[in-house]
């Protein structure tokens, strides 16, 4: 358990590991500190309170939340298939799952356009049959964000499932529970921490999504201009403003993630050890 007092005679951790870990911390924190130092603190308040910024922030939070829900809905079952079935070609499927991680997001956006765009493989039928066009809508933002964020969720849940013992699922089967019932009542609650970790990664990735969004969904205030897009455009004219907007995005995402964590963790404590 975390926070337990270690025995005093435990040997000290290797210096090399500590040194490299310290470098890692500097590596992560350094650029962020530089951002903090150069931030236009005196203007920060005004920048945050401005209408367009709040609009972009609100859109970002809404779309990232929707994308996370979409990823949970689709990604948890996919992870289950990867971890718990003997489906042929699972290795290939796992590789396909990680594709959006490797693909430059802009290419992902183009790929989404060629599928769901007005002249896309699927999109052209959506247009002629239903008069629906996906690009340039908030829905397109959610799709783009979910596309790039899904691997984070699937990999996290897949890992949690594979390291979770199947013994409880076997026990449930001997009690006559179908795999679906077992999945809902046993598997899912037991891997909840892994699902939570995946959802957090997924949300963070969706919140920071830029390339696929601007390519597939476009950029229009209130509809598709999320915070990262607003930051990019601010960079073109006023880098200081871009820095300020980045800080807002970082601050809000940290607040959301920490808030969620404490909520979930308190809900989970007292559960499985």
């Amino acid at each position: 358990m975390v926070g337990r007092v270690r025995p005093r005679r435990r040997s000290r951790p290797p210096v090399l590991l500590l040194a490299l870990a310290a470098v890692a911390v500097l590596f992560l924190v350094g650029p962020f500190v530089a951002l903090l130092v150069t931030a236009p603190w005196s203007r920060l308040g005004g920048l945050i309170a401005s209408g367009p910024v709040l609009q972009a922030l609100w859109l970002s939070l809404r779309t990232a939340t929707a994308a996370t829900v979409l990823c949970l809905l689709l990604g948890v079952p996919l992870a289950w298939v990867l971890a718990r079935t003997a489906l042929p070609g699972r290795g290939l499927l796992r590789a396909v799952t990680t594709m959006p991680l490797v693909l430059p997001p802009v290419v992902g956006g183009v790929a989404l356009l060629t599928l769901l765009g007005r002249r896309g493989l699927l999109g052209r039928h959506l247009d002629t049959w239903f008069g629906v066009t996906v690009p340039f809508t908030s829905t397109a933002v959610v799709i783009a964000e979910a596309f790039v964020a899904l691997p984070f969720l699937v990999l996290a849940v897949d890992g949690a499932l594979r390291s979770a013992d199947e013994q409880y699922e076997q026990a449930a089967a001997t009690l006559g529970a179908t795999r679906w019932y077992t999945f809902r009542r046993i598997t899912l609650p037991l891997v909840a921490p892994g699902v939570l970790a995946g959802a957090v990664l997924c949300f963070a990735r969706a919140l920071g999504e830029f390339g696929a969004t601007i390519t597939f969904a476009g950029n229009y205030p209130g509809t598709t201009r999320t915070m990262p897009l607003a930051i990019y455009l601010a960079m073109e004219q006023d880098p200081a403003q871009a820095v300020a907007l980045s800080l807002v995005l970082i601050g809000v995402s940290l607040a959301v993630l920490i808030g969620l964590r404490t909520r979930w963790l308190s809900a989970l404590t007292g559960g499985p050890s």
Partner: peptide, 28 residues
């Protein structure tokens, strides 16, 4: 397994850790 109606009590009990004792027994 789930259709065989074979009750198996495991060596290391395998009670579901996230459920109460009552919920465990009611599970089947």
């Amino acid at each position: 397994t789930e259709l065989r109606r074979c009750g198996l009590v495991f060596q290391h009990h395998r009670v579901f850790p996230h459920l109460s004792a009552l919920e465990n027994v009611a599970f089947g």
